[in-house]
């Protein structure tokens, strides 16, 4: 990564204006994936001074600022189990102190544990320009034009859980399963290897394990059939865990 200009604005409107007026400008949240890219960035806009971090909860609605590091999600006492478990094995602690929930969402990464967890939670996103939208819609369609993600929010569930299979402790998941219980059960499966998808079931039973609603594909990590069997095994573990 090469950077021509770097700014760290103190005002959200200024950050947005610089983003839309400068061709090739990018937002820096944690900067973890930006660091890995082999390109020259004409302008990097660091969101670190905009106060977009923090976790709050009121009346059952949980709000997480887009610049909140993943380590904060992992260690928070105010978040559901699915998010605490879903962030535990995202690289190491050092990376999780820098990688942010917003960066994890904006990349629309198929392997993202965070996106899978938030999808199971039926999370919504709040953007500076585009306003609110569901995470599902963002993952499926992206955005037209540039924007700055401000926060992600969801209703606290009755119960939740998350399991993934990884070849090494801090690796990307081969497949990931998140389950959230409210009046019904929402199951999200990520790293299929495609982007996370969700399905809602009235009850969790043996039929759920058939996972007919989900598509799996093969890549060099795993075959489609193996992924599906793994996902079913992880879901069964979650069910037997008392969900």
């Amino acid at each position: 990564m090469r950077i021509t200009r770097y700014i760290q604005p103190n005002d959200l409107n200024e950050a947005y204006e610089r983003l839309v007026e400068t061709k090739g400008a990018v937002i820096m949240a944690g900067g973890m994936f930006l660091r890995l890219q082999h390109r020259t960035l004409p302008l990097v806009i660091d969101l670190g001074h905009l106060g977009l971090d923090g976790i709050s909860s009121a009346g059952g609605l949980v709000t997480i600022g887009a610049m909140t590091p993943l380590r904060c999600l992992e260690t928070s006492q105010d978040l559901p189990d699915i998010l605490k478990k879903g962030t535990r094995q995202v690289a190491g602690v050092a990376v999780r102190n820098m990688a942010t929930v917003g960066g994890s969402i904006m990349g629309r990464y198929p392997f993202s544990d965070v996106a899978c967890c938030l999808l199971a939670l039926d999370a919504k996103l709040k953007f500076h320009y585009h306003g609110e939208m569901t995470l599902q819609s963002f993952l499926d369609h992206g955005l037209e034009g540039e924007d700055i993600l401000l926060e992600v929010f969801f209703e606290m569930p009755e119960a939740s859980d998350y399991k993934s299979f990884r070849k090494t402790y801090t690796d990307f998941p081969t497949v990931a399963v998140g389950v959230v219980k409210r009046e019904s059960y929402t199951v999200a499966i990520g790293a299929r290897p495609g982007r996370a998808k969700k399905w809602t079931y009235d009850e969790m039973n043996r039929q759920t394990l058939a996972l007919e609603a989900f598509e799996f594909s093969s890549d060099r990590r795993a075959s489609a059939e193996y992924r599906k069997q793994l996902a079913a095994a992880l879901l069964e573990d979650i069910m037997e865990g008392g969900m």
Partner: peptide, 26 residues
């Protein structure tokens, strides 16, 4: 050089971070 191995770990404001991925200007 990809924040994967931990040999470059330092503390910034008391938090463990990978120095290979932390911009000096930041």
């Amino acid at each position: 050089d990809t924040a994967s191995c931990g040999v470059c770990n330092i503390l910034v404001d008391g938090k463990l971070v990978p120095s290979c991925a932390f911009l000096t200007v930041r």
